[in-house]
Design a protein around this nucleic acid. Sequence first.
RNA 1: GCCGAGAUGGCGGAGUGGACAAUCGCACCAGACUGUAAAUCUGGCGGCCGAAAGGCCUGCUUAGGUUCGAAUCCUAAUCUCGGCA
Length: 385
Amino acid sequence: MKFKLVKKDKKTKARAGVIHTPHGDIKTPAFSVVGTKASVKGLDPIDIKNAGSEVVLANTYHLYLRPGVEIIKKYGSIREFMNWQGPTITDSGGYQVSYLWTRGEEVGQSVKITDHGARFRSHIDGALHEITPEKSMQIQKVLGADIIMAFDQPIKLANSVRKNNESLRRTFDWEERSFREWQKLQETGDYQALYGIVHGGLDKKTRKSFLDFVLSTGFDGIAFGDETIGADPAMTKKGLDTVSDYLPDDKPVHALGLGGGPEGIFVAVERGVDTFDNTGITRMARSGILFINPEDGGTIQNKFRISIIKSKYRGQTTPISKNCNCYSCKNFSAGYMHHLTVNGEPLAARLNTIHNVFFVNSLMNKIRDSIEKGDFTSLKKSWLS
RNA sequence: GCCGAGAUGGCGGAGUGGACAAUCGCACCAGACUGUAAAUCUGGCGGCCGAAAGGCCUGCUUAGGUUCGAAUCCUAAUCUCGGCA
């Protein structure tokens, strides 16, 4: 993998670049669409490509449980398994084993995390499993993504300081072990870039020491995780501001689970984020929340989105947006999309997802163009003011 | 025409003397969605006032009646469904 910076914005830390991977280039800033179980729900690889996506992010935890590494081995990698030709990323599964259960009653029963690793029960059949940093790397080697993540344990702001400090200490150790195991595994096969994850929440000192650790260890890229990067743009701002001054030019930066829609994207990009993934964009599509740009009435207040299930769209003969060039808007009316969504037709998931993914990819293209032309700030103004 | 069953909120359907403005489901309305256990989840849903707690009004086909009290019991009417002619 090689990251090449094309242009840096003068007023902000936004940057345009290219990530060269063994399976294609990713022009940055870019959105990595999420295909957790080697599938972007509702889309096939042609749809994904036509919606403008260059990279897909899958998940170690889910694919390890199903179909399992032995099955993926038969295909070669998730690329062959899902027939996606382009670059891929896998998340390490650290996030999943730590926090997948916190919504249920089984908190503390289904997962036990020690310095050695995470023992947990499968959400599918209850079987006991363990993922260690080494094992996460081994699984990700089989999955064969171009970019892989170190095994970590995200903190939660609601947790006690003591618990979070333990997670942070453990994550340093886990990431170092991930790195050592990864070095061994890269002796064969296609090169997989390993990103180290910078934790620390809103604490500048911790963030900085994590960043220093990631840079000095020799990871190929930098990832930001935890909830401060999540849904709230104001929080994302604070979280990224802790270390955005220290990001190097020669390492790509990924925001894991960046939320907040267009606003969150601008916040992240102007702080040096090159790639990000997000599940809401595709998940919201399936429940009928669709993005619209400023020309169609998108604002910070409405979060640049509409709900296609609202009765006002019943019978509308025009598309969601006349300005949108996505397959759905070019071929179908808003009234038909409303009808499909209200009725839970499988086609609704596809058309809605295509729209949202295309929308975000288009925004990323506009952002990239504006950085190259030197007018990123005015683009941002036209969206956020 | 006769015999039998029934009529509850936009719909389906509970409740069969007081805890009922009425379980629940659907529909509808509003909201949420971070490295996806999510085609998911949450809230509202007779009217009026209130941020809420709560208060007032109207209400279980219609008209009477019994009762301290009726969606629930009685009488009649209307309508619907099933069976027989």
